[in-house]
Amino acid sequence: MITKQEIINWLERAGEIYEKQRGYLTELDKAIGDADHGNNMNRGFQKVTENLADHSDSDIKNILSMVAKTLISSVGGAAGPLYGTLFLKGAGSIDASDEISDSDLLHFWEEGIKGVQARGRAEAGDKTMIDSLLPALETLKQSIGNNEEITKALEKAAQSAKKGMEETIPLIAKKGRASYLGERSKEHQDPGATSSYYLVSALAEAVSNNSSE
């Protein structure tokens, strides 16, 4: 079971991480993209954090839709429509309520990631955010199937995302601006996969912190 407070904590935590890692993300993006990913993600999530203040009475579905719309309009780069789609499709797959079940959470990620793939036409191994999201999803599915604790499940999912992120390093980019570089995109970690890892790990942190308190 995930509570509304945990969702709020997740988003705020994500905002903190993107603010802190802004320079790093931009650094990664500078190598193989247009050096705006850190700023874009940070801008989007600071807006999300601001908007959360007006959503104290909203349910989880509403909050996640708000995140989608905010990211679409404020991120600016390709991450806007992509993360926007993740939240939009994800939010569309769950019920309007102040609590969601573990399987609802799984639905959120399944539908969201499906949406991102459709939008970006990216496959695993294309050196994109999908490369950390898909392994995370796979792990989450298994853990929930095995009736593991949600805190544990998310922690493992975050580890898988991290592994996926690191494995983008030797890949050749197939999508986005990095794909213009071809072979030269090798030996760089993908910024999108990195920001996606942060998103998953923020969720893991938010849920585990809350249950330990």
Binding site: S73, S74, G76, G80
Partner: peptide, 15 residues
């Protein structure tokens, strides 16, 4: 562009 006076470069699906 997007509605960020400091860094207006980007695109916005709603716009």
């Amino acid at each position: 562009g997007i509605d960020d006076p400091d860094d207006p470069i980007g695109t916005d699906a709603v716009k």
